[in-house]
Amino acid sequence: TTFVALYDYESRTETDLSFKKGERLQIVNNTEGDWWLAHSLSTGQTGYIPSNYVAPS
């Protein structure tokens, strides 16, 4: 499932994924509650993102 970032997010830990508003993200795993494992289609990096910062594209 592809989502789009609603806001900028700066990672707080090394497992988080930083992203910019408008960036497209492929969700890898969304069974972890409020933090989803995502892959950035812009940077190619993978990490955890706050689910309330993204919406379906």
Rank of each mutant, 00 (worst) to 15 (best):
T1D: 08
T1G: 12
T2M: 14
T2C: 06
T2P: 02
T2Q: 06
F3S: 03
F3E: 09
F3D: 06
V4R: 11
V4S: 01
V4W: 08
V4C: 05
A5L: 02
L6T: 08
Y7K: 12
Y7T: 04
Y7P: 01
Y7C: 09
D8T: 05
D8P: 02
Y9S: 02
Y9R: 07
Y9F: 05
E10T: 10
E10L: 10
E10M: 11
E10K: 08
S11K: 14
S11E: 11
S11F: 01
S11M: 03
S11W: 00
R12V: 12
R12F: 04
T13C: 09
T13P: 01
T13Y: 11
E14F: 05
E14N: 15
E14W: 05
E14L: 05
T15S: 12
T15F: 06
T15C: 06
T15P: 04
T15W: 06
T15N: 15
L17A: 09
L17M: 03
L17T: 04
L17Y: 04
L17F: 15
S18R: 08
S18M: 01
S18W: 02
S18G: 10
S18Y: 08
S18H: 12
S18T: 07
F19D: 01
K20H: 07
K20W: 02
K20I: 02
K20Q: 15
K20S: 10
K20A: 10
K21A: 13
K21T: 07
G22W: 03
G22C: 01
G22H: 05
G22S: 05
G22F: 04
G22K: 01
G22A: 02
G22E: 02
G22P: 00
E23P: 00
E23M: 05
E23C: 04
R24K: 13
R24D: 08
R24F: 10
L25I: 09
Q26S: 13
Q26A: 10
Q26F: 03
Q26Y: 10
Q26H: 02
Q26L: 07
Q26P: 01
Q26D: 13
I27Q: 06
I27K: 06
I27V: 13
I27R: 11
V28C: 02
V28E: 14
V28P: 09
V28G: 09
N29P: 12
N29R: 13
N29T: 15
N29F: 05
N29H: 09
N29Y: 07
N30T: 15
N30A: 07
N30L: 12
N30P: 15
N30S: 08
N30M: 10
T31A: 13
T31H: 02
T31K: 05
E32P: 08
E32G: 12
E32M: 15
G33V: 13
G33W: 07
G33P: 14
G33E: 15
G33T: 09
G33Q: 14
D34P: 12
D34V: 12
D34W: 05
D34R: 11
W35C: 12
W35H: 15
W35Y: 14
W36N: 04
W36D: 02
L37Q: 12
L37M: 11
L37N: 03
L37H: 03
L37K: 13
L37A: 03
L37P: 02
A38T: 02
A38P: 01
H39T: 08
H39W: 10
H39L: 10
H39G: 05
S40V: 05
S40M: 03
S40A: 07
L41S: 15
L41Y: 10
L41I: 06
L41A: 11
S42F: 08
S42V: 11
S42R: 12
S42Q: 06
T43S: 13
T43D: 12
G44R: 05
G44Y: 04
G44M: 14
Q45N: 07
Q45A: 13
Q45G: 12
Q45E: 15
Q45W: 05
Q45F: 06
T46E: 12
T46V: 10
G47V: 00
Y48I: 09
Y48H: 14
I49C: 14
I49A: 01
I49D: 00
I49M: 03
I49L: 10
S51T: 09
S51G: 05
S51C: 13
S51P: 11
N52V: 13
Y53R: 10
V54C: 07
V54M: 05
V54P: 00
V54I: 10
V54F: 04
P56V: 11
S57W: 04
